[in-house]
Simulated scan of single mutants.
Amino acid sequence: MEYLIEFEKKIKKDHIDSVLVQSNNRIIFEYYRNRKMKEKQHKIYSITKSVLSILVGIAVDKGFIKDINTSIVDYFPENKDDAKKDITIKHLLTMTSGLHSPGNNRMIPSKNWVNFVLQQEMIHPPGNEMVYSCGSSHLLSAILQSTTGISTEEFAKKHLFTSLGITNYRWNQDAQGISIGGFGLSMKTSDMLKIGSLYLNKGRWKSKQIVSTRWVEESTFPKVRIDDTSAYAYHWWNMTFGNHTDNIFCASGYEGQYIIVAPEYKLVTVFTSSIKDESSRPLGYFENDILPYIVFR
């Protein structure tokens, strides 16, 4: 326990807002910078993408989405473009659509985000190269709304959030009423932990299978190698820490928001932060402070 006391001293000096560490389904460390942080709806930024991935999996399980290898032009009849007919839902999930990514600073002011993304030029053949893009995630949210007939937020509430007991959240929309796929969610730290626990337990929550084990495994299995220590799956990151070669995967967001899942150690760690300069710092805390404590205790 002394180890965790030292860890707490470190994070108190940093811009860490909250940390939860759960081992074997039991919370072994809990930190909030102040009392407000426990109930706060934290902007989780790109962790939204990983939640969206879960929803796509549920939609596949329930037959709303027949096949992730389907061309995206099937879902946007007003934007038929032969140049984009080879882009599939799977390409959006792995960020390998080949579409130019103009950045959020150009997408957000546009009048119609979906049209804006679809009008971007092709810079690579689909599947060739990863280009990280909130636009790809937003197209996925639009496809989810098109196939289910309800908003992505409503679908999440009906098929994910209610089962997990997640009630205190906000999901912003674009001007067309499409839940923002790339960064629109805000939720409590404790609810972020539930998302991680769901995936640690291969899609099962208590006695209910929320999303299929097959999807959990497929969506977190490395698809695109980024460098020696990281890869990308279906809107989830895969991370290698030192000699730990097992599949540790995580959801990450701007300014240091993280849900880190280490199945081999039955470990889920959540960080919310307001780190402006080096948002990957929580990964360092996980590698140097949390993992050693779990492995060697």
Rank of each mutant, 00 (worst) to 15 (best):
W205Y: 11
Y232R: 09
W236F: 15
N247S: 02
S186A: 13
N201Y: 06
L200A: 04
M239D: 08
N238C: 12
W215E: 01
S197A: 11
S197R: 11
K202N: 10
L200W: 09
F241V: 01
I226D: 05
G196C: 11
S219E: 06
K223E: 11
N238L: 02
M239V: 08
I195R: 12
V211M: 04
I210W: 02
T245R: 12
D191F: 02
K194E: 11
W237S: 09
W237I: 13
T220D: 08
S207Y: 04
L198F: 06
T220P: 11
P222K: 05
S207C: 00
K206Q: 13
V216C: 15
S230R: 14
D191S: 08
I195Y: 13
T240K: 14
R225E: 12
I226P: 04
D191T: 09
K206R: 11
N243F: 10
R204D: 00
L198H: 09
G182M: 06
G182I: 08
V211C: 04
I248T: 14
M192G: 10
N238F: 02
D227H: 03
I248D: 03
T220M: 12
G177D: 12
M239W: 07
P222G: 03
K208A: 01
F183N: 15
I210R: 00
V216S: 01
D246R: 02
D191W: 05
T189R: 06
M239H: 08
V216Y: 04
P222S: 09
I180P: 08
G196M: 13
K223M: 05
E218D: 14
V216N: 00
I195H: 14
R225G: 00
D246G: 12
T245N: 14
E217M: 07
P222T: 04
S219M: 10
F221N: 13
T245C: 03
K202Q: 11
R214L: 12
S190E: 15
W215S: 01
V216K: 00
K188G: 06
N247V: 05
Y199V: 09
F241D: 01
S179L: 06
S212D: 05
I226A: 05
R214Y: 07
L193S: 09
L185S: 12
S230P: 00
N238D: 10
D227S: 01
P222A: 07
G184H: 11
E218N: 11
Q209R: 08
W236P: 13
F249Q: 06
K188W: 03
A233V: 10
W205K: 01
A233S: 15
L198V: 07
E218W: 00
W237D: 13
R214W: 08
K194L: 06
F241Q: 00
W215H: 03
V224I: 15
N201H: 15
S207K: 14
G181A: 07
K223V: 03
P222M: 08
G177W: 12
M239C: 01
H235G: 00
G203H: 00
F249T: 09
W236R: 07
H235N: 15
